[in-house]
Each structure stands twice: as C-alpha cells, then as structure tokens.
Amino acid sequence: MLHKPESATSSAPTATKDSVVIDDVTLIYKGSASEVVALRGTSLTVRRGDFAAVVGPSGCGKSSLMRLVTGLAPPDHGTITVFGDKVRGPVKIAGMAFQNPNLLPWRKVVDNVMLPLEIVEPHRHRFRADKAKYRAQADALLKTVGLDGFGERYPWELSGGMQQRVSLCRALIHEPALLMLDEPFAALDVFTREELWCVLRDLWQKLGFTVILVTHDLREAAFLADRIHVMSARPGRIVMTKTVDLPRPRDLDICFEPQFVDIVHELRAKIAEVRNA
C-alpha cells in the first residue's frame, strides 16, 4: 500500500464494509462546446476510521472526488463503494465542509449547526419533538470546538476561523461515518489554520469518523493524515500513496521534526514532478 504502482487498476482493491473504495473511476464534465476529463482511472482506498488526505496540483480534480464519494455526481466509468454499499445517489452518511463556511446568515449559529438534523433521517421526523435534546447536542459540539456560548450569535458576528468551526460542527452534528473536507482551512491565516488543525485532530480522535481531506497544504496533510494520496495533473489519478507513520497524538511541534519535514519534501517533489509532466 505504501507506494501504489503507476497503473493503480492492476491491483483492484476489494470493497469491504470497512472501507471507502474508489475503483478505476473516470469522470467527464460535459460542457456545451468541449468536455473536460476531470478524473481518469482513479483508484483509492480509505479504511474505516482512517484520516486520508488527497493532495495535488490545482485543478487536478480533487474536488470532483468529493462529489463522487458523496454521490452528488455519478462516475462515467468505474464504481465507488462506501462501507460496503455501492454509491448510486446521495450517500446520506457523509458530512461536508468547504473552504467557504457557507453558513446561513439569517440563522443563529446553533440553528446553522442543526440544519442537517432538519434534513437527514431519522432526525428529521423527531426534530420538532426532540428539539431540546438536539439543541443540547449542538451546544456540546460547539463547546468541543471552543465556541461555548456562541450558539445565540449570528454567523456574521463571528470571525472567519470561528465560522469555519461552526461549519465543521454542522458537518458533524448528525454523527456521520464519513467526513469530506474540501480545502476547509485554505482561506484562513496561518495561526487560525493551525488552531483548527488541532480542533479537527481532537474531533477525529474523539468521534472516530473516517475523513477524506482534500487540500493543497502539504503540512496540513502530513500533520493530520494517516495516509496521503498524491494526484496527478488533470485528468487526475493517484500517483503515489504515502503513509504517515508519525506517532499519535500529534502535537504542532511535530511540524519541526526532521521526519515530518522529510515527508513534506517528498510530497513536494512528487507534485513538482507531476506538474511538469
């Protein structure tokens, strides 16, 4: 698993209940004039409970991966299996967060966090009856990300980093088995970003969900992930999988260890190679 061969299809991974498997997937965006091949022959396996990161040059189809795994876009070829079930439509067990927190400005923070509960079953039907219970859940989650007492505020009263914490809470409130993150910290300043790395690390260690983090920040990937998948330029496919065997729990100081720096260097070299290819 450490270094996948260049033709990843040759070792077709087997789909089990304990993994997210992307098997030889091709995704084509059809425009009015031309079509763009976003992904071609992409294969990727993430074990349940793992923290996976996907890095690559910009425009390599990293975000397409998100839409495929959550069932928002059907692949043109290949299959995607999430915990044993083939993806045919929205998976409903995933939480998502993006670079833009996308909070609803007319809702209080706590009502933003509870939004998924108004949509997803079985919470949807109990929502009105059990509102107090859900409210307590939301407050507890806000507390774990350091936003104790901010539930009654409006999103526009919060800083960018705080809004992103709320966005994480919203992605996690329905206790999804899978968390999909698309460059969630890209718009934040370095200090806030590192703070949120730790928030995400703690949430993941506490709740034990599976994460697929799409990022272009190699340090972020190395700090958080168990395994880092490097994508080629478009059409994207996985050209390298790097296992990060740094001990856990990881502290921010680890970013200055030679072992950590080596990993980042190795990733950087690989990306430079695929960019120029």
């Binding site: 839409r67 959550t70 069932g71 928002l72 929205p90 998976v91 409903k92 995933a94 998502m96 967060a97 993006f98 833009n100 996308n102 609803l104 939004l115 998924p116 949509i119 997803v120 079953e121 919203r170 992605a171 329905h174 999909m180 698309d182």
Partner: peptide, 14 residues
Amino acid sequence: MEPELEDVLRALGA
C-alpha cells in the same frame, strides 16, 4: 444560491 451549500444538503438526501 451557493452550489456548495446545495451540495452539503443534497449529500444528506435533501
């Protein structure tokens, strides 16, 4: 409407 927000909700089966 922000397409990403739509994605967040659609992925939940909205």
